[in-house]
Design a protein around this nucleic acid. Sequence first.
DNA 1: TAAAAATTTTAGACAAAGCTAAATCTTTCA
DNA 2: TGAAAGATTTAGCTTTGTCTAAAATTTTTA
Lengths: 221, 221
Amino acid sequence: METHAEEDYLKAIYSISENGPAAVSTKEVAEYINSKPSSVTDMIQRLSAKKLVDYKKYKGFTLTKKGKEKALLIIRKHRLWELFLVEHLNFSWSEVHEVAEQLEHVSSPLLVNRLDAFLNYPVRDPHGDIIPDINGNLRDDDTIVLTEVPNKKTCFVTWIKDSSSEFLTYLDQVNIGLDTEIKILESYPYDRSIKVKIPRKSAITLSEKVCKNLYVRLNEN
Amino acid sequence: METHAEEDYLKAIYSISENGPAAVSTKEVAEYINSKPSSVTDMIQRLSAKKLVDYKKYKGFTLTKKGKEKALLIIRKHRLWELFLVEHLNFSWSEVHEVAEQLEHVSSPLLVNRLDAFLNYPVRDPHGDIIPDINGNLRDDDTIVLTEVPNKKTCFVTWIKDSSSEFLTYLDQVNIGLDTEIKILESYPYDRSIKVKIPRKSAITLSEKVCKNLYVRLNEN
DNA sequence: TAAAAATTTTAGACAAAGCTAAATCTTTCA
DNA sequence: TGAAAGATTTAGCTTTGTCTAAAATTTTTA
Ligand SMILES: [Mn+2]
Ligand SMILES: [Mn+2]
Ligand SMILES: [Mn+2]
Ligand SMILES: [Mn+2]
């Protein structure tokens, strides 16, 4: 369990790290978080003791694997809440950040994952940022749910959301796996099922339930 | 702005006060909040300095008007979040409290009131507790929205939810105000409007929109 | 390459919130 | 009514997180 402040530091270090591969400096974090370098040093030493950052005096610091995971799960919460505020509570684009900055610290895995489900497992927040998944993985920029692929387009499976053995068995039966090429032949609005073609197989129909659990990358061109 | 801990103390004092009119004791709060009497004394002195409680050494304490208002607004948040979790995130009755205990500390009047609207201005939380309104007033136990009054029953207006001048003007035009007696004559499921009678006036029809903004107490007997 | 500038760390304070142990006040009851 | 018991407060300490000022280190630059 991390405190509110620790979580904000982890997030700050993560965000600053995205600018490049260099170690993060005390000064950068102080500016980012609106505090003083001496306060940052203090906190970094605590995070280092908890093995959340690698730190060498005067040499800057980086997140450990554990630290990065924690940062991504906080970012996940932040972005899910932002989307909730915009989609369901009529917040505007610009009003959400401040509130999400607080909501992200509410600690309850059940809550986060229920919220994710309620929002229908979104991939991007209202600012277009990718929402890390339940394991803290950043899904690819261009990964979308199969239901969003337009007719006649071809795409490749990048992520299988439902990892139950039932679903994986089903996918085996219809010859779909990671990286499988899928072409949308026709869609049936009535039950939101779609007819698709997989190379060297005959056409099959996928139910809405199946489509919602398949994430894909569109074939470029 | 109060801290997380201060808010929990205010809530605890409020809840304990509901048991009776006596001043609250250090020991009671310590037990309620799961801490020690010495910690409570410490906090009570801080709350006293902030004029949120009236305190005389060794004599117990009570919430000031300001303290009570703050307590009720936190309770409002707590109960609205509980209802949200149960109604929209499939939490059970028993899972909500712990999470609401955290969510209640998120500070954003906009958020609370949007959540209230999203939930359709509920009067009770999943545990049947009354949700204080936007001003921290506890609506009467027996106050219900006009749409819920059965046919042929008589009731009295106890709360006017929409306080816009447009609505108040409308109410003037149809001779409805606080405490007005309203008898339901007939309801039209088609558009959810109802025909009602106000003493010494001719019958009028109220639209669903109007009914949803009028809260009433049923005439007993 | 050595002094100046910039950055980082340490030292020392402070506020919030908790604790234990000791002191003080109130209540009970013999 | 005056101990004893019980409740409350104070004193002193701890942790988290912040700050300023001073010391230490690194980087820049002349
Ligand atoms: Mn935050
Ligand atoms: Mn965002
Ligand atoms: Mn709480
Ligand atoms: Mn409740």
